[in-house]
Every structure is written in structure tokens, then in C-alpha cells.
Amino acid sequence: MPHLIDKTLPAFRTQGVTKVYGTGASTVHALRGVDVDIPAGELVVLLGASGSGKSTLLNILGGLDRATDGVVHFFADDLTAMSDRELTLYRRHHVGFVFQFYNLMPSLTAYENVELVTEIADNPLEPAEALALVGLEQRLDHFPAQMSGGEQQRVAIARAIAKRPTILFCDEPTGALDSHTGRAVLRVLQDVNRELGTTVLIITHAAATAKMADRVIDFADGGIREVVVNTTKLSAEDIQW
């Protein structure tokens, strides 16, 4: 797939994206025709109740799942037309993921977990550099079991950003963390967005997180209820929840 990225285009443009699970009586419409543009370089928060469709959209944008109908463009490329192999390469080269439960390899150290990604990426950061960005330069040789939840999540972020992803997807990144640690993690995400220019998409239940976003997309019943563009963004430290 082409790696040229035309920054004049939005990072994602979706047109009529639907997602239907199951058939017959058990059919579930997870997405009912979503049209949205996500400009490159923004920090976007996806809000909404469970089952509102935000995770489904994120999975489709992240190349983990396929839309039942509709078109998804990543800059000039049509994600919906890609093969599984192309989607893997798309994830490998452009996408970073941060999960609620970190999903680190327990058998690898912090450094090695990051290295796992840098080994297969085109123009990655040094693993140590990525870990320094999240403030873990002292914890390189620690295993996940030897770190706190917040530290593990920061390793996960370091792992996600080390490949210099075009997009960073975060699914409830603070969901398993206390407010203090959660704020530190959000701070790192904000830094990544500002300093590396990475487009960051964060799914969250916590409406307060929305205050640090450039753009807030509010989901309900498989569709977008409203898109709010924040004129005044709060810094991660100032968020209260």
C-alpha cells in the first residue's frame, strides 16, 4: 500500500459506515450509517454509552474489523477495499494501539515490549527513547509483573508510539487506573499529539476527558449524536474527575 500521506486530506473520512452483527432475529446494528471526518493531527475523544458504537467504529478505523457497508478512507487509501494482509501492514506501519488492559507481553521486559514493535516498523524511535517519552527511562529492564498499572499503560503507549504511528488509538486507556495515574497517562497522550503530531483517538466513558480534546464525537445508538469542536482545550493536568 502507498505510504504517501496527503496532509491536506482528513486522516479518516467515513461515508455511510454500517456494521451489522449476526443474522435474522439476532441481528444487531452496531453502526447505522456513520459519516464523519477526522482531521489529521487532532486529539479526538469518542464519547458514548456502552453499545453506542464508538468501539465498533474505532475497531474499523484501526483495521481490526470490517464495515458491513460504507466506505472508510485513511487519507487517500480505501480501508474497506484492503485485504487482510494489507490491513496487517496498515496496522504495522500506521497504527498504534493502547488498550484498557495494556496487553503487554508478560514474558518481555518493558524495553523488549517496545522493541517488539520497533523490529518490524520502518522508521521507529529507539525503544529507550520511546520509554523516555513516557517517563520510564529508569524501568527499561522491568517485566510487566514488576510495574504498576500506570507504568504498564505507559509502556503500552511507548510501544504504540515507538513506530511513529500516523494514528494512535486508545480504547479506555485510563479505564483500569486511578485518577492520579490516569491523568499522567492522558498527559503522555497529549504530549504525543503535540510533539509528534500524531492523530490521537481516545475512547472513554469519562466525559471530563473530553475537555482536553480538539474534537469530541458523541455516540448514541450506533450513530453520531453530535460533533463538538473545542475552542479552548484544557491541559491533561487540569482535568477533574
Binding site: 488492559f101 508478560p106 514474558s107 518481555l108 523488549e112 522493541e115 517485566f143 509483573a145 514488576q146
Partner: peptide, 27 residues
């Protein structure tokens, strides 16, 4: 949330084998 399994016992192995093994092999 599940505590990650503790692999710190095997840290020495990683160091010795680092030169020969890539990440997946180390896993």
C-alpha cells in the same frame, strides 16, 4: 485486571540470548 505473569526469573536468559534471539523467540 489480571496481574501479568511474572517473567522476571528469566531475565538472565534474555540477556544471554539477546544476541541470538529476536523478540518472538524470546517470548
Amino acid at each position: 485486571p489480571p496481574a501479568p505473569a511474572d517473567y522476571s526469573r528469566s531475565v538472565g536468559i534474555g540477556k544471554t540470548l539477546k544476541a541470538v534471539l529476536d523478540q518472538p523467540s524470546r517470548i
